[in-house]
Design a protein around this nucleic acid. Structure first.
Lengths: 196, 196
DNA sequence: CGGTCTCTTGACGGAGTTCAAAGCTAGTGG
DNA sequence: CCACTAGCTTTGAACTCCGTCAAGAGACCG
């Protein structure tokens, strides 16, 4: 499969680009291979990348002073991952970003992103839509986090991300849902008993 | 005070506009006065506005099938309020938006916003930055919602929005923090006792 | 005034946490 | 190819933070 096939298709959903424009995109993206367990970003560092996941799985998370983790995002194929606040304002991040599988990424840095947007202004739209969709899905996630039970959050997660549970350890899903790994395990056994 | 003084200052923080450009902005914004308790948007409706709050206070919130409310945002002077997903894709909203005080708003609709961005492309940056900041502050709010106690969330709120508690009923703040109004009351009395 | 909205207080219950221990699985090196 | 380890999941008991329900007390406004 062509290295840029996925990202072309992804961009195409928001805006049509000419072949010449697509060549510009390809020229500015940097391919990066990272091994499982690689830390791409740690709290306190400035985030220098926006990464499109061509292959693999990445997790971003917060970590408080007691060692308690909250997973912000699982990024699999066709997702972008970054700390946009840190990336755009070049200030220290509060996030950790880590590869959960061996990954093939296509990476932008602030300079190449700037150059990309200058050469292809219509990509403004692509990135704006991405941030907007991100925002509104985070809004509804906040609502569910507050308003629904652990079981409903888990069912919702299964529906929205059916392939993730097969790829990542269960306790990371618990930390995404905002519940303890032990309780997620109990919820699952309760669900299994009821559906027999 | 000039009707457009606030919004000029607000735009100016992200990008410098010429006087001619500012005139275009002023010409496209529509002044709207709404009374306390006016519903600007209800679930199921399409959101046709982005409103800049010149004066007053507005609340956006989710409401689940059991009547349980989660406040998404308090918008006071210098804030924008809208349902961006509904606004941009012209699809039904999941939010309610309601005036908590008599308000003076400056309003864009999809057509005037489109026209604004076409005439002043540099405003793309202004709106993009706004969405980005919104996103990253929502990310950290999600983290705190999950990882911290009711008391810490309340203290955090007081620090971040010191003027809000004097303007809105306390049970709305509880619904912003994701706790019951009764428990917020108990947290406050506990804090008051300790700090004497 | 009288009704409506708001905040407080207390008793009780429950959803979810914490801690500890044990079983399970997969990867790794000898 | 087996033994060992490290990470993951499960289970149970005790506990806690917070929600629910109910009642009362202000405060505000028409």
């Amino acid at each position: 499969m062509d290295l840029f096939e996925r990202i072309h298709a992804h961009v195409n959903r928001s805006c049509r680009l000419s072949d010449a424009d697509l060549d510009i995109v390809d020229g500015l993206l940097e391919k990066r291979i990272v091994k499982r367990k690689t830390m791409l970003l740690q709290e306190g560092e400035v985030c220098h990348f926006e990464a499109f996941v061509n292959q693999g799985c990445i997790r971003s998370y917060y970590l408080d002073e007691n060692g308690f983790e909250v997973t912000l995002q699982f990024a699999i194929e066709d997702w972008w991952v970054s700390d946009i606040a840190s990336f755009h304002e070049q200030k220290p991040s509060h996030l950790f970003i880590e590869a959960l599988e061996d990954c093939e990424l296509l990476v932008l840095n602030p300079a190449t992103k700037e150059s990309l947007l200058q050469q292809i202004p219509s990509l403004e739209r692509y990135f704006r839509l991405m941030v907007q969709r991100n925002l509104s899905s985070l809004q509804s996630r906040l609502f569910k986090t507050i308003a629904t039970s652990a079981q409903d959050k888990y069912l919702d997660f299964l529906e929205k991300y059916p392939t993730i549970p097969q790829r990542v350890p269960q306790h990371y899903i618990a930390s995404y849902l905002g519940i303890s790994p032990e309780f997620l395990s109990k919820v699952r056994t309760r669900m299994a008993r009821k559906s027999i």
